[in-house]
């Protein structure tokens, strides 16, 4: 067993883990943060994407011991509130990407969505105004098996506009 200290979504955890424990299993099974999904488990599909020290990674292909001392951000830490505010707006506090995936219908079953959003968040940090082609290229490590990608790309560009401070049409 190896001792690790990892800051996840702003909280620092210290645990004894087996070296072979994958980061995604640490998040889900040890911390109970099941917002991050396991998809293909072979570093193809991107469903398990989280940010490791600020960059998007596939957490099924990172050992928890490799993340020792690091900061991990997951989909669960993206919204500023739980969104269930009493002001009648269920999406209050959501990150613009979460809102845009909602309004642009960027999902059907939703399984790929946490990974899509975390990959897109890193993409937009690097390129705040990506073209459609740049979004498609930037998200090539994330697979969606039900919608196709049209609305996903639309959602990312809508969120990008909002993050740039532009008026987003109703």
């Amino acid at each position: 067993m190896t001792n690790v200290q990892i800051t996840v979504d702003g909280t620092t955890y210290e645990d004894e883990v087996e070296p072979r424990l994958l980061l995604v299993q640490y998040l889900r099974d040890v911390l109970g943060k099941t917002g991050t999904n396991i998809g293909c488990d072979t570093s193809n599909c991107g469903a398990c994407t989280v940010h490791l020290d600020g960059r998007s990674v596939k957490s099924c292909t990172v050992l928890a011991v490799q993340a020792d001392g690091a900061t991990v951000d997951t989909i669960e830490g993206l919204a500023s509130t739980d969104g269930a505010g009493g002001d009648g707006d269920a999406t209050a506090g959501w990150h613009p990407l979460q809102r845009a995936f909602h309004t642009e219908h960027g999902l059907q079953c939703g399984y790929c969505t946490p990974g899509m959003i975390m990959a897109a968040a890193d993409l937009l940090r690097e390129n705040p105004d990506p073209s459609e082609e740049e979004v498609r290229h930037g998200l090539e490590g994330n697979l969606c098996r039900c919608t196709g990608y049209v609305n996903i790309v639309k959602a990312v560009r809508t969120a990008a506009a909002e993050l740039r401070g532009e008026e987003v049409g109703a």
Partner: peptide
């Protein structure tokens, strides 16, 4: 090489 996430690691 690979995709963005792969290139980060």
């Amino acid at each position: 090489v690979g995709d963005a996430q792969v290139r980060h690691r």
